[in-house]
């Protein structure tokens, strides 16, 4: 079953065309790595999927529900209520973590399940504690985010997104603002998620992760999907010139 179907996405900022007819399909349990040079539109693509940015043209279907539909003269969005409900089927992890600083780790995790999904608080707390154990931060339950290292904050952010029981997880360069010695712990958590067959889209510069964990790799540059395929096709036998150049540059 398709979890994400994005077709012919166009997005511009004022005069700058950033996405020029992007297609992206993600099936259940797939891990899609999105790679490419900075400024190529990778973040924008993720942000369009959950309506942090709105598209000019194209169709976006998330988990069988239409977020945006191409009418021929532009994209038509679902109602605000529906769009919000559809968008939060996707958990998102940001480069800058974006934890809520005025809430403890546990409060960060239970906020949206209790306030948005109106679930039973005691139950949500129990699940949150299990999630914290999973990301290895049970002992930080009552600590404020500022006291945590970057790697710990990012693992809390992953747990916070998972607390919503999302159908899909989106990651936008989750390790890019971490010191090198802290990226491992975050990548390990993401690997475990992939092993549990979570559907994931990961924008990343960690080629090792893309090669070993991803089931599909998408190479984006200049607002186009330049190449798309299995890790072997992308990394071992690249045919696209732009991709070959990119792989050469990052090897150095």
């Amino acid at each position: 079953m398709k979890k994400i179907e994005a077709r012919n996405i166009y997005k511009r900022f004022q005069n700058l065309e950033v996405l020029k007819g992007i297609d992206l399909e993600v099936s259940e349990g797939e891990v899609v790595a999105v790679i490419g040079p900075s400024g190529g539109g990778k973040s924008t693509l993720l942000r369009c999927l959950n309506k942090l940015e709105t598209i000019e043209q194209g169709t976006i279907i998330i988990d069988g529900e239409t977020l945006a539909k191409d009418t021929g003269k532009g994209a038509e969005y679902a109602s605000t209520e529906d769009a919000r409900r559809i968008a939060c089927k996707m958990g998102m992890v940001f480069q800058q973590f974006n934890l809520f600083p005025h809430m403890t780790v546990l409060e960060n995790l239970i906020e949206a399940p209790v306030q948005v999904q109106k679930r039973n608080k005691a139950e949500v707390i129990k699940e949150a504690e299990i999630l914290l154990e999973k990301v290895g931060l049970s002992d930080k339950r009552d600590v404020y985010p500022r006291k945590l290292s970057g790697g710990q904050q990012q693992r809390v952010a992953i747990a916070r997104a998972l607390a919503m029981k999302p159908a899909i997880m989106l990651f936008d360069e989750p390790t890019s603002s971490l010191d090198p010695e802290l990226t491992g712990e975050v990548l390990r958590t993401m690997r475990e998620l992939a092993e549990e067959k979570m559907t994931m889209v990961v924008v990343t510069h960690e080629m090792g992760f893309a090669r070993e964990v991803a089931t599909k790799v998408v190479f984006m540059a200049d607002g186009y999907v330049q190449a798309c395929g299995t890790p072997e096709e992308i990394f071992e036998n690249p045919t696209n010139e732009r991709l070959k150049h990119f792989l050469n540059v990052i090897k150095k």
Partner: peptide, 30 residues
């Protein structure tokens, strides 16, 4: 209040009022 706070709230499905009441204003008051 950094834009990232609004974006995190958005991805968690919070409405404008919820975002203001639960996320933004408590930080503003401080």
């Amino acid at each position: 209040i950094p834009k990232g706070q609004y974006e995190a709230a958005h991805t968690l499905g919070m409405s404008y009022v919820q975002t203001m009441r639960r996320i933004v204003l408590p930080q503003v008051f401080r």
